[in-house]
Simulated assay, not measured.
Amino acid sequence: MESILTINNLTKKFGNLTAVNNLSFTIKKGNVYGILGPNGSGKSTTLGIVLNVVNKTSGDFNWFSGNTSTHDALKKVGAIIERPNFYPYMTAEQNLKLVCKIKGVNESKVDEKLDIVGLLERKTSKFKTYSLGMKQRLAIASALLNDPEILILDEPTNGLDPQGIHQIREIIKQIAAQGTTILLASHLLDEVEKVCSHVVVLRKGVKLYSGRVDEMISSYGFFELKCNNQELLLTTLKNSDLFTSIKANDDLVTAFLKAPMPSDAFNKFLFDKGIILTHLVQRKESLEEQFLQLTDNIKN
């Protein structure tokens, strides 16, 4: 699969602060990548470097398998890394036509891109009348005018209400379904889990994980348990080799599986040991739980 962007040992320092620390990962064509991390983890700095608006300290990156200069490569990139900034007294259509002139793109693209983001019927409305979500969608339409091979979005749903968040996520999925590669930075675990196929987890500029989202959350899950003899339950679980770890919180016991196991087989296993459960729920670890496990293993 063709490489869209390759980052090798990228580092950025601001004085004594290391914002990006020896970062490496590759983005392949046709996938949706999320750079996930809390504020200050280096997400925006990384995007700024590959878009040539922030100078790197060391390391390197190349676009499109290294066969294209960064200047030429960026002509195939659409990006939103700041708040949408259009002329408030111009209509959406007028603003996009102006962007077309700047980018050297045919104005015939305007209606097509407005339709993708659900703003075609509001194309003659002035930008100042738009809600924050509509402004963000117009920015996406603007970034799509040059039919980019990759769309880069920095915190695309930041500040939006639930409806606006849902609309942006659906648009991202729709764009990705048409074959456009997407790279988005987000501090929202839910966003990455719902939208992205791949994730790079950053904390304080350091990469903690890089790979498929489904592989990151491909653990065998866990059981949540209660019974009238917790001491016997804990002893039985800890003496078994079925689990990676056992946790007890008040009267709730959590047992993390080492291998797949259906709940009925697990219930029988305990029943045969003389344990009758009053509560049994089988769950899958979420991206949030995986993320917390990763960050808990990194010293502050």
Score class of each variant (00 low, 15 high):
residue 101 K to G: 07
residue 102 I to T: 12
residue 105 V to K: 08
residue 105 V to G: 09
residue 105 V to P: 06
residue 106 N to S: 15
residue 106 N to K: 13
residue 107 E to V: 15
residue 108 S to C: 12
residue 108 S to W: 07
residue 109 K to N: 12
residue 109 K to A: 14
residue 110 V to H: 01
residue 112 E to N: 12
residue 112 E to Q: 13
residue 114 L to V: 06
residue 115 D to A: 13
residue 115 D to W: 01
residue 117 V to R: 07
residue 117 V to M: 08
residue 119 L to Y: 07
residue 120 L to R: 09
residue 120 L to V: 15
residue 121 E to V: 08
residue 122 R to D: 12
residue 122 R to L: 09
residue 125 S to Y: 15
residue 125 S to T: 12
residue 126 K to N: 09
residue 126 K to G: 05
residue 127 F to Y: 14
residue 127 F to M: 08
residue 127 F to D: 05
residue 128 K to D: 14
residue 131 S to K: 04
residue 133 G to C: 09
residue 133 G to F: 13
residue 134 M to Q: 08
residue 135 K to Q: 13
residue 135 K to L: 04
residue 135 K to I: 00
residue 136 Q to V: 09
residue 136 Q to G: 10
residue 137 R to G: 01
residue 137 R to Y: 06
residue 138 L to Y: 02
residue 138 L to D: 02
residue 139 A to R: 01
residue 141 A to Q: 11
residue 141 A to K: 10
residue 142 S to Q: 14
residue 142 S to Y: 02
residue 143 A to N: 08
residue 144 L to S: 05
residue 144 L to H: 06
residue 144 L to A: 10
residue 146 N to T: 11
residue 146 N to M: 08
residue 146 N to Q: 13
residue 146 N to S: 15
residue 147 D to V: 00
residue 147 D to Y: 07
residue 151 L to E: 01
residue 154 D to H: 05
residue 154 D to L: 02
residue 154 D to A: 05
residue 155 E to H: 07
residue 156 P to Q: 03
residue 156 P to H: 01
residue 157 T to D: 07
residue 158 N to A: 06
residue 159 G to K: 03
residue 159 G to N: 02
residue 159 G to C: 05
residue 159 G to P: 09
residue 160 L to Q: 09
residue 161 D to A: 04
residue 162 P to A: 05
residue 164 G to L: 07
residue 169 R to V: 04
residue 169 R to G: 03
residue 170 E to Y: 00
residue 171 I to K: 06
residue 172 I to F: 07
